[in-house]
Design a protein around this nucleic acid. Structure first.
Length: 597
DNA sequence: GCCGTTTTCGGCCCGACTGTTTTCAGTCG
């Protein structure tokens, strides 16, 4: 069963088979609580800088993952910039007792369902508090009812338009959860950019916002244009095909909603302002805040229109010039999260991030033999066309009935088929593999002699997600301890927007992966993007190599590798940190060496 | 609540747009 969240129930206990069990607080839970505290303080109208401190604390804790508990135990939390005595004490209380008195007190002031109201565009903490205190509105349902009854009109600062906009926002929220996959948002963004490029008034155009930073999900699309006639660009933007709704239409800034429900914002500036604005609208908010603070300490003022010394503009033609003016190397958009990139750029120690062309070949491809849409040879041809030097075929194993997993006889037949197709396509090396289910007890899905007949084995969890963390961790570690295993597949099992990761102690899994020379998959399927970018650095520091795998179920799916490269970049990975940047010859040796270990 | 080669106290980034306002607060990024 699913973990019962503290934030919703006020309890760290969950009911499993009728028994009350203690649930260990994970960094993720603690991060959510700190984030909730920030929201509650906002609702109370507390000091904005205190709120920011809690938000920053939440992000730091999230990134720590399973390292959090040892840090607390060793009393070393405060070593992280942004965690001071108060946060350190509260995090320690959460880790050691599973509760936080301060949080419990704060929560008594507002019903938990009030958080939902903040997801409505145009509703922030101030107005939500007013709705709660004056109208007693506690939930989305109650708010909708209050709108229908025209009761919002009685409040100061609310009029007809606000009420209609809120009602519309509730409908939107009901239809989508307000988040979209990176791949879907990116596709829509590319369409908008191509359409706007047609416009003669557009000088420069770029993607900005979280999509440019390659966050795994997006709330909206941010676009930036430079032009001498902003009004004309705006008029064109709000009239583009596919626009369902115009949310805002100003002189330099407009927002539309596409028929998919996705919102897109366009900002237009002069061409001189473009680099400054591009940096500004790429964010993140936290990165910008930190960088502006730094600029200020250098006697400069930074905003979307420029970098100023007094009244005088510091001329910059590109983002790189801006970073140079601030005394640092250019920070790639993916790293702009205020998670150490500014300090690294100042020290000239930013990593040279991996690029798509560094990927020499890919593993994890399914064919019609299990649940893929294209045949073995079609997949091989497609991989060759993409310029890959090798392709690792890995259909599902025999226990995966739902996916037509391969019996031992069918494994042998596929190996013969690969030998035959290999002869017809000598330019690309086909590696024989399998995506073996990790069974509930941690064993693999075939006898050893069959496992040893593959060039590589990906071991993945596809069932029994409801285990305890200890059991799941033991299960995965047992699987990757098997000498035949080359790669741990989609390590946390999450599906973005729709399914949480299963409970797992990732630190212990990464340690085991290192010990047994197993690569960990960075599954590039846009629904997964698993391993999460937040944990890539940790894996790298432990000496674990990540394998960027498309998990392709069709020839088109092979191209998903690019999303994985995006995640790897966001996770600070270099070429050498990634398993499948090896040449075909190196890879053949690596796989052979693994088998004889 | 955090932080400190100006500081252990007093700072902490900045501007556009909207709606409801006669001058601005709230929201958003």
């Amino acid at each position: 069963m699913k973990l019962t969240h503290y934030r919703r129930t006020g309890s760290v206990y969950s009911v499993d088979n009728g028994l009350l069990k203690f649930t260990v607080m994970k960094a993720r839970d603690i991060s959510e609580i700190l984030s909730d505290i920030a929201t509650l303080l906002e609702l109370k109208g507390d000091n904005p800088f205190k709120i920011r401190a809690y938000e920053q604390g939440a992000r730091i804790v999230e990134g720590l993952g399973d390292q959090l508990e040892p840090l607390v135990r060793e009393g070393r939390l405060h070593e992280h910039k942004g965690i001071g005595p108060a946060l350190s004490e509260k995090i320690t209380e959460l880790v050691t007792t599973g509760r936080l008195a301060y949080y419990d007190e704060l929560r008594k002031e507002f019903p938990a369902t009030i958080f939902d109201l903040l997801n409505i565009p145009g509703l922030g903490p101030k107005r939500v508090r007013l709705l709660y205190q004056k109208l007693g509105v506690r939930s989305l349902g109650e708010l909708e009812y209050a709108c229908v009854e025209n009761r919002l009109l009685t409040l100061d600062g609310f009029g007809e338009k606000s009420q209609a906009k809120i009602l519309d926002g509730i409908q939107q929220l009901k239809r989508h959860q307000g988040r979209f996959l990176f791949s879907d948002a990116m596709e829509a963004a590319e369409g908008l950019i191509a359409a706007l490029r047609q416009s003669p008034e557009v000088i420069r155009i770029s993607l900005a916002g979280s999509l440019r930073r390659r966050k795994e999900t997006a709330k909206d699309i941010d676009l930036l244009v430079s032009s001498g006639s902003p009004a004309a660009v705006m008029a064109r933007f709000v009239a583009l095909p596919g626009v369902a709704d115009v949310i805002a239409h100003g002189e330099t800034k407009s927002s539309i909603r596409l028929s998919s429900g996705l919102q897109a914002d366009l900002r237009v500036v002069s061409d001189t302002e473009f680099p400054y604005a591009l940096h500004h609208f790429t964010g993140s908010k936290e990165h910008n805040t930190a960088l502006r603070g730094l600029a200020k300490s250098l006697g400069l003022k930074m905003n979307e229109y420029g970098l100023f010394r007094g009244e005088e503009l510091v001329p910059c033609a590109t983002e790189a010039d801006i970073f140079a003016a601030l005394g640092m190397d250019e920070i790639p958009p993916e790293l702009r999260e205020n998670l150490g990139e500014i300090e690294a750029a100042q020290a000239r120690q930013l990593p040279e991030l991996i690029t798509e062309s560094d990927i020499q070949g890919v593993f994890h491809a399914h064919t019609t033999e299990s649940d893929g849409r294209h045949s073995l040879e079609e997949m091989v041809k497609a991989a060759k066309a993409l310029g890959y030097r090798y392709l690792g075929i890995s259909d599902h194993s025999r226990s995966a009935h739902y996916a037509n997993g391969l019996s031992i006889e069918r494994v042998r037949a596929q190996h013969n088929a690969i030998d035959e197709i290999q002869q017809r396509h000598p330019e690309i090396t086909i590696f024989k593999g399998i995506e073996s289910d990790i069974l509930a007890d941690g064993s693999l899905d075939y006898p050893d002699e069959v496992l040893n007949s593959f060039d590589f084995v990906i071991a993945s969890v596809h069932s029994r997600f409801g285990m305890t963390e200890d059991d799941m961790t033991a299960r995965v570690i047992k699987a990757i301890s098997h000498p035949a295993v080359t790669i741990l597949g989609h390590p946390t099992g999450r599906l973005l927007i729709s399914r949480d990761a299963y409970p797992l102690n990732l630190t212990r899994v990464l340690e085991a992966a290192k010990a047994h020379h197993v690569a960990v998959e960075l599954n590039a399927n846009p629904h997964r993007l698993d391993l999460d970018w937040r944990f890539c650095k940790d894996a790298r520091d432990r000496g674990v190599r990540l394998s960027i795998n498309p998990d392709a179920h069709s020839t088109e799916g092979l191209s998903d590798t690019r999303y994985g490269v995006g995640v790897a970049r966001k996770g600070w990975l270099k070429r050498a940190d990634v398993f499948n940047t090896q040449s075909a010859d190196q890879m053949r040796q690596t796989l052979a060496a693994k088998k004889t270990r």
